[in-house]
C-alpha cells in the first residue's frame, strides 16, 4: 500500500526505552492523529519517522524504505514541524517559508518557478500573503506558528509530520489548521499530527493512534479507538459525547 507503514519501531533515549515495538499503517490521503498523555512517546515517534532519532525496526513510505539514503532525498519526502519552532534571525515571512524549499535545491540563489509557486501557495493557504514581507520576529505567537506550518507545507513532501501544530493557536485558527491538514491529506498525502485536544483529534482525524508509556495501545477510526474505557484507562478522563459532522466526539468532563 502507499502511505506510511511502521513495523516494530522502537526508540531509546540515552539508554532509556521510550517507544516499544510500534506497528502502524497509515494510508496516503489520511490524517493520523497521535494522542497520548504527556511522556507517552508521541514526539519520539515523530522524530524517529523524521530520521532525527535512532530507532530499530523498519519504516516504509510508499514503496520505499525510510532510513539510510541521502539526507536531501529524505528531506524531499518528509516535512517535519517540531513542537517548538526556533528562529535565530529576523527573516521575512516569505524567506522562512522559502527555507522549506531547501531540500529541492538552493531557492535563495535561484528560485525555480516551482519554488515560487509552492511558497505562494503555502502563504495563501495559511492566510499569510499579506504578511509575506514582515520579519517573522515581529509577528504574534499564533502568526508565527502558521508561518512555520507554511514552511513545512512549502516542501510539498508526501509525508507531513506536525508536532502539536495547534498548540499556539486560538480556537478559530485551531479549527482552520486542522481543516487544512485534512485538506492536505485529501490531496493524497499522509499527515501525522500529534494532538493534545482529544475533541479535535476525534473530529478531524481519519485514524487515531493512542500511545501510552511508549506503547501503541490502540489505532483505528476515532469512534473505535477513543472509547470511554480507553479514555478512562489511558487519560484518566471521564468524557461526554457530542455529535459534530456526524461523529460522536468526546469532550472531557472530569478526572477519574
Amino acid at each position: 500500500m502507499s502511505g506510511l507503514v511502521l513495523d516494530r519501531v522502537s526508540v531509546s533515549l540515552g539508554g532509556q526505552p521510550v517507544l516499544h515495538d510500534v506497528t502502524l499503517a497509515v494510508g496516503a490521503g489520511a490524517l493520523l492523529a497521535v494522542v497520548g498523555p504527556n511522556g507517552a512517546g508521541k514526539t519520539s515517534l515523530l522524530r524517529a519517522v523524521a530520521g532525527l532519532a535512532p530507532y530499530t525496526g523498519t519504516m516504509r513510505l510508499g514503496s520505499e524504505m525510510l532510513g539510510g539514503g541521502p539526507a536531501a532525498a529524505r528531506a524531499r519526502r518528509i516535512a517535519y514541524l517540531p513542537q517548538r519552532s526556533e528562529l535565530a534571525w529576523a527573516l521575512s515571512v516569505r524567506d522562512v517559508v522559502l527555507l522549506g524549499r531547501l531540500p529541492h535545491g538552493d531557492p535563495f540563489s535561484g528560485a525555480t518557478p516551482q519554488d515560487v509557486r509552492a511558497v505562494a501557495a503555502a502563504l495563501d493557504r495559511l492566510g499569510l500573503a499579506a504578511l509575506a514581507d514582515r520579519p517573522v520576529t515581529e509577528l504574534s505567537g499564533g502568526e508565527r506558528a502558521r508561518v512555520m506550518l507554511a514552511r513545512a507545507l512549502a516542501t510539498e513532501a508526501p509525508l507531513l509530520l506536525a508536532d502539536e501544530p495547534t498548540a499556539a493557536l486560538d480556537p478559530a485558527h485551531q479549527l482552520a489548521v486542522l481543516g487544512l491538514l485534512r485538506e492536505i491529506a485529501a490531496e493524497g498525502r499522509t499527515v501525522l499530527a500529534v494532538l493534545h485536544d482529544l475533541t479535535l483529534a476525534a473530529r478531524f482525524a481519519d485514524t487515531v493512534a493512542v500511545l501510552d508509556r511508549g506503547r501503541l495501545v490502540a489505532a483505528g477510526p476515532p469512534e473505535e479507538t477513543l472509547s470511554d474505557a480507553l479514555l478512562g484507562r489511558v487519560f484518566g478522563l471521564a468524557c461526554t459525547r457530542v455529535a459534530i459532522d456526524g461523529r460522536q466526539v468526546p469532550i472531557p468532563l472530569a478526572r477519574l
Binding site: 522524530r47 541521502p70 539526507a71 524531499r76 517535519y80 519552532s85 526556533e86 522562512v96 527555507l99 531547501l102
Partner: peptide, 19 residues
C-alpha cells in the same frame, strides 16, 4: 546553505537535509 537552514534550529535543519 547550512547557516540558512540552521535559522530554524538544528532539528529542522536536519529535517531539511542539512548534515
Amino acid at each position: 546553505k547550512a547557516y540558512r537552514a540552521l535559522t530554524l534550529g538544528e532539528e529542522v535543519a536536519a529535517s531539511l537535509g542539512t548534515d
